[in-house]
Nucleic acid binder design. Structure first.
Lengths: 171, 171
DNA sequence: GTAATACTCTATCGAATCAATAGAGTAACA
DNA sequence: TGTTACTCTATTGATTCGATAGAGTATTAC
């Protein structure tokens, strides 16, 4: 029942890039993203390449380069990301929709464990497939606004042509 | 999001012992349980000791010995078993009720990932804490009866003083 | 009481996964 | 044309996973 660091970092990176996009500065350097999200740079590098290969991100080399979302944030579901990075959502392969595999129990059709785990997998999938990156980012920003916290989409480096969201009340 | 073999075997063993109890032959040998559930004997040994230490099982040595449930099946929740064997239900430590731990994100209070994962952990816990071993066993036996399948609580070894459930229609 | 039985303990195993780091290489922009 | 920043390959130590081996010990039936 566990999300690995790899998966956690992947999702936090995507969310970070979602915020960056929303903020009008969609392209972010690995280094900046790593610093902002407290993720080891080299580890993040590998994860971003994986996310790019999976079609979630695109990259630009050279000066002013970096990573950005490859598609609108409302077309990326958390569930799909986790499936790509971590594998199936199901806690046990015999209830997986995407990666079914028979297990060692003597009678799958009447396995009590399977019945329970099927409910779990459905509940998890219902949540994670419903949540898009956009919804997640929006919920985050809403909460920050409620608490009057400034949105630090590109804090750290002042450089780059970033336009801070005007309507936010700082402090 | 994964249940390990250890956890799977533990739950299947408990369910097996739940059926055995229901069937009037509550004490089952490791060897028989392993054979019935397709679990490696030596691996199961270790798991049963763990379940005993955790208070779910009790054991009897010598002839006619074996393992049995230490308490009624409706006082054992699937969630508690998994917590003992696998650890916290939460996919990420920062949303765990039982084993909270701060994660590396810069602002936990406004972390979008955390919001999503909190929903997942609550959904999972709601299911797993509601299901007792008894409910699981009952659901299983009901389904078997529906499909007119005999309940094989002690198949394999004919020996021991087992009373087969009379009302079941074989084949 | 004693032998068979069945749980208990310690130890070890290879394989796989996890989390992270190092360093050289290459495309692109100013 | 040099700096920038992504890309690729390789390796690392630690931990967990799944499983097995074998000796030891308590209990019961006879």
């Amino acid at each position: 029942m566990k999300l690995t660091k790899r998966g956690e970092y992947a999702l936090r990176a995507l969310i970070g890039l979602g915020i960056a996009r929303e903020s009008g500065a969609p392209i972010v350097r690995i280094r900046d993203l790593a610093e902002k999200e407290n993720i080891p740079v080299k580890f993040l590098e590998a994860i971003l390449i994986e996310l790019k290969t999976a079609g979630f991100l695109e990259s630009k080399r050279g000066k002013q380069g970096g990573y950005s979302l490859a598609k609108p944030a409302d077309r990326i579901s958390i569930g799909d990301v986790i499936r790509k990075i971590e594998g199936p959502l199901a806690p046990i392969a015999c209830v997986s929709q995407t990666c079914y595999e028979r297990c060692s129990c003597p009678d799958e059709a009447h396995c009590g464990l399977r019945m329970v785990m099927l409910e779990v997998r459905n509940a998890v999938a219902r949540i994670l497939d419903a949540y898009t990156l956009k919804q997640t980012v929006d919920a985050m920003m809403r909460k920050m606004r409620e608490d009057s916290v400034s949105i630090p989409f590109l804090s750290g480096t002042e450089a780059r042509d970033s336009k801070p969201l005007g309507e936010l009340a700082p402090k």
